[in-house]
């Protein structure tokens, strides 16, 4: 029975289905709603309602530690998303276009490994490597660079999967047509392949950006003194006890993300509807 039938079913079934639906939504969103509400709490105590206040939002503006963490997180997220998209595109391109080359199996495994490997283990092994490098080479200092490398490692795998999926359903005749019309391999890539996979590059960028922005595990292993990302700041504060200013910071992030997601979906929805209408018009003509 389809979900639709279940929801439209009669009497008891219907009430039961509705109940489950509501329970599901409550389970998913109640914590977030609570967090948003308590960010406006005047009281310092996390579970006592002391009246409405914007106090914590005001305090946030002077919270140097958190602001610096945010700035660092944004920079790392930007760098690692950019790097992941570039490397992921190259890896995906290689895997899709070259069916046979020496070490292809190993390459595929290496690209996919971070997807299935527990993050703690990746973090630990990277830390070990860094400690050894530090000892023998005196480089690199733990900080932005090392966190970036860790996030890049993880992001690269995700970006490869996203871009690979798009490249695989690209009609191979399009690239051949470009070649046939006189475009050299690099021109084919820039003028035809790249514009056609642009959507997936944007998706890969957003995905790896978020992945880096909210990463705690790898960052914890790879950060050094003075390089504390926002999730690390929040995490360490939460251990000392819930504070409303963290709720305020989280609410801002939720707000920004929601607006972004809604705007993005609307844009895609509109574009698809317009495209469908144009195709229908062409067929009628």
């Amino acid at each position: 029975m389809s979900v639709r039938n279940l929801l439209l079913g009669s009497g008891a079934t219907r009430a039961f289905a509705r109940g489950w639906l509501v329970a599901g939504f409550v389970f998913l969103y109640l914590p977030i709603v609570a967090l948003v509400i308590y960010s406006f709490n005047a009281s310092l105590m996390p579970v006592v309602w002391g009246g409405f206040s914007l106090r914590w939002y005001g305090e946030l503006a002077h919270d140097q530690e958190l602001l610096q963490g945010l700035w660092l997180s944004l920079r790392i997220a930007f760098y690692s998303a950019s790097g992941s998209v570039v490397l992921g595109t190259l890896a995906a391109f290689t895997l899709v276009k070259y069916r046979r080359f020496l070490g292809r199996t190993i390459f595929t495994g290496m690209v996919n490994a971070p997807l299935v490997m527990p993050e703690v283990i990746i973090g630990l092994s990277l830390l070990l490597m860094l400690v050894m490098m530090q000892r023998w080479l005196g480089f690199p200092e733990r900080g932005l660079l090392t966190i970036w490398m860790g996030h890049l490692l993880l992001g690269l795998s995700y970006a490869t999967v996203v871009v690979q999926a798009r490249l695989q359903d690209l009609n191979p005749e399009l690239e051949e047509a470009a070649t046939d019309l006189g475009a050299r391999p690099i021109q084919v890539f820039v003028l035809v392949t790249l514009p056609l996979i642009l959507n997936s590059l944007v998706s890969a960028f957003l995905l790896t950006f978020t992945l880096s922005l909210d990463d705690v595990v790898l960052s914890a292993f790879l950060s050094g003194p003075g390089a504390t990302t926002m999730p690390l700041v929040i995490f360490s504060r939460a251990r000392l006890g819930m504070r409303p200013d963290i709720n305020a910071a989280a609410t801002i992030i939720i707000g920004v993300v929601s607006v972004g997601v809604v705007a993005g979906s609307l844009f895609i929805f509109r574009a698809e509807r317009r495209r469908a209408a144009e195709m229908a018009a062409a067929q009628r003509a």
């Binding site: 009609n171 005749e173 399009l174 051949e176 047509a177 470009a178 070649t179 046939d180 019309l181 006189g182 475009a183 050299r184 035809v192 514009p195 056609l196």
Partner: peptide, 20 residues
């Protein structure tokens, strides 16, 4: 001689028009 240097052009079965 690679395809891009041949004075030959092909019309593909799927037409392969560049959608963008």
């Amino acid at each position: 001689l690679p395809p891009y240097l041949r004075p030959i052009n092909m019309m593909f079965q799927s037409y392969a028009l560049f959608p963008h």
